[in-house]
Design a protein around this nucleic acid. Sequence first.
DNA 1: AATGAATGAGACTTCATTCAT
DNA 2: TATGAATGAAGTCTCATTCAT
Lengths: 226, 226, 226, 226
Amino acid sequence: MTSDGLSSLCPSRWVRRKDARPSELMEAALALFSEKGFAATRMEDIAQKAGVTKGTTYRYFASKEDLFCEIIKTDIEPRLQELLSLSESAPNMPVLGLLAQIAHHWRITVLETRSSAIMKLMIAEGGNFPDVANYYETKVLIPITQYLESLIRTGIARGEIREVDPQDATHLLMSPMVYAVVKKHCFSDVFQIDYKQYINTMLDIMTEGLKKPVEPQPLPTEGNTP
Amino acid sequence: MTSDGLSSLCPSRWVRRKDARPSELMEAALALFSEKGFAATRMEDIAQKAGVTKGTTYRYFASKEDLFCEIIKTDIEPRLQELLSLSESAPNMPVLGLLAQIAHHWRITVLETRSSAIMKLMIAEGGNFPDVANYYETKVLIPITQYLESLIRTGIARGEIREVDPQDATHLLMSPMVYAVVKKHCFSDVFQIDYKQYINTMLDIMTEGLKKPVEPQPLPTEGNTP
Amino acid sequence: MTSDGLSSLCPSRWVRRKDARPSELMEAALALFSEKGFAATRMEDIAQKAGVTKGTTYRYFASKEDLFCEIIKTDIEPRLQELLSLSESAPNMPVLGLLAQIAHHWRITVLETRSSAIMKLMIAEGGNFPDVANYYETKVLIPITQYLESLIRTGIARGEIREVDPQDATHLLMSPMVYAVVKKHCFSDVFQIDYKQYINTMLDIMTEGLKKPVEPQPLPTEGNTP
Amino acid sequence: MTSDGLSSLCPSRWVRRKDARPSELMEAALALFSEKGFAATRMEDIAQKAGVTKGTTYRYFASKEDLFCEIIKTDIEPRLQELLSLSESAPNMPVLGLLAQIAHHWRITVLETRSSAIMKLMIAEGGNFPDVANYYETKVLIPITQYLESLIRTGIARGEIREVDPQDATHLLMSPMVYAVVKKHCFSDVFQIDYKQYINTMLDIMTEGLKKPVEPQPLPTEGNTP
DNA sequence: AATGAATGAGACTTCATTCAT
DNA sequence: TATGAATGAAGTCTCATTCAT
């Protein structure tokens, strides 16, 4: 009111946006942490990117480390909910079909969103945040691993999947995910990946590699692969 | 073994560590960088771990960053040589067999050595060292990727491999490597991996998933792609 | 006594704290300044202790320093009035008796009230507030010192007190006061002091040490104290 | 050697004085802490006063607080030794004489040296350093208090001192010390004190006030204190 | 009049790097 | 060549103060 001329010059100063600040700050911080690493990111950069000043950051997060942890935890909770609902929504679907569904869901909700940056962050900085790394492992990695492994075992039991080592097969299923995240965040985009196609190819090959051949030589009566 | 008899004859020769220093320092630095990250590692820690004092480090490396770069480059050169010799040593071997050989060779020379730490370092810190990251991509990632891709194309051309997208298949082949490194260096060892078995399972599944089925309509008449 | 009957008739009158605020804030601030020191006390702590928020404090005091100064000055004025009335109320009383009266009056109005905290504050923080320290010296210390010194001189002139150095004796009279304040505010209460008894003992010893021996009644010739 | 012209301009830079630094820093810090208070003293000021730069300070003291504590403790130890030796060196000397000796010794070794600043520091800042304050009380105040009290009791038992409350009398003996320190460090020198004379006057008055009258005219008639 | 979010100067502390010994 | 004391730039965090609501 004092002078619109001035206010248009510095529009955002002294604007009170209590509710929006935390997520804005976390968004800014995630981008910078993921890009430059935790240590190389200055609080002032984060604040600036979020459109506030240094001090404001500390109204919402007790420390840089706290900010880091909040980012991780805030993102993880919804992811966990999804995992649960997915695993329940699929009663007796063929295992390999379910795996395909999971892979694409992960692609859409993680790989193609900023959540992938969280994963990169954990990979790159986990060592310096034992608590968060432990939390991440306990709440995310281990449950997912165990869930996938149980799927594989089910598939083997049902005769859908060959008799492979379930643990190694699980790791193998997860590796394209990790690879995609690393590729996306750590190196230049010399080989641009079409994620959808990439996941499809991966599913094609994995399915082919895992599926049990349809009992090639049973009785001379019927022919397979109709 | 460092024979006191000899050392008393020619003491300075065995006492001076001049030649060993750089590699000792790089060894120490690699361990710390990989464990705690570049920024969180102090020059003094490195020096201490190498058994010298801070100042000495600067006799061999102009700066912390220089030390980082030297570590990467020093390790990369021999790796590149191996890659070349491997690719040449395999004239007409079946592609899938060659891939298996490469995988185990990588396991033995990278995954199970400290070279895996280099890879982790590049993943975690590459963003802050564009020069090194670029060097790493240009000299390591891209050549390997292209080499593998050419193998896949060859395999397809020869009829050994199904008609999959060669680029995606290449990424898929590399992903278990990246995954293993991340697993080894970034998270606790809840699921201890037996690397040899892991690679074998991976090769089993990949081979099965990639190989061209032996012509489903086995009429006695003609032979395939001679 | 603040009659609920009345307050229901005229609520706003009793609800608004405007008039009480400054003293509440000063009270809170004095307690914290005295306990933790000026610098270590945050405006927010003061506000909280007074039951308001940070911003409110600035409606009543221009700055933290201003608040400090107001505390001192507000407390000093009434003290000065008392000093004056005391010194006037005692026309020709024996000096040592007057000193005893002053000592107990000081005990009751200063040592045993929060005013002692003011004195501690001046001792501890005076150096950083030259204006206030100067004010305190000019308005409090010097007048009291001079008043006491004049009493001593009177006592000597009247033959009630031995011929001691009046300045040193004055300091000596004041020292138990300073000591008591320091003891009360700066150290734990290992030796709990009964202030009344402490002052009495002090008066006993001082009186005995200062009083002129009753002229060992030599010859009946001349009479002192006519 | 590079250029005497320059070196005379900045004579003290890059001078290595490992052994002298700690005491120089403590000296500088004590002066500033005592003058401006702990909080208002910047590490850089201390460093500058000691002729070094900010960072150097941290080679010798882990933190500002650590520096504070070291100052106190370093000064206290020798003082304690003195106290012990004094108390032992006085076999059967009259108590009041011993007190006089102690008072002057304290004047010379504490009041008239920088040790008095330590005492002022404890008075002003003790509240923020519970550990040190506790140490100071335990090692200094309480032993001294107890020692003096035991002297008073001895004096009373021997008939040298009147039957006063020993605790209050002890406090009274200590109060001129505290007063002198406060006077010296907390206020301007309006009334310059000649410490030697001040202590003498104090001893005169105290002695007179404490001593047992020489058995009022022991005429052969009646016996006192039956 | 009261609130409390936002500001920004300033202090402590760290640590890569320099350099006298 | 090796040492480690000294330097000083830079970053985190605090908190007195401001001001839109």
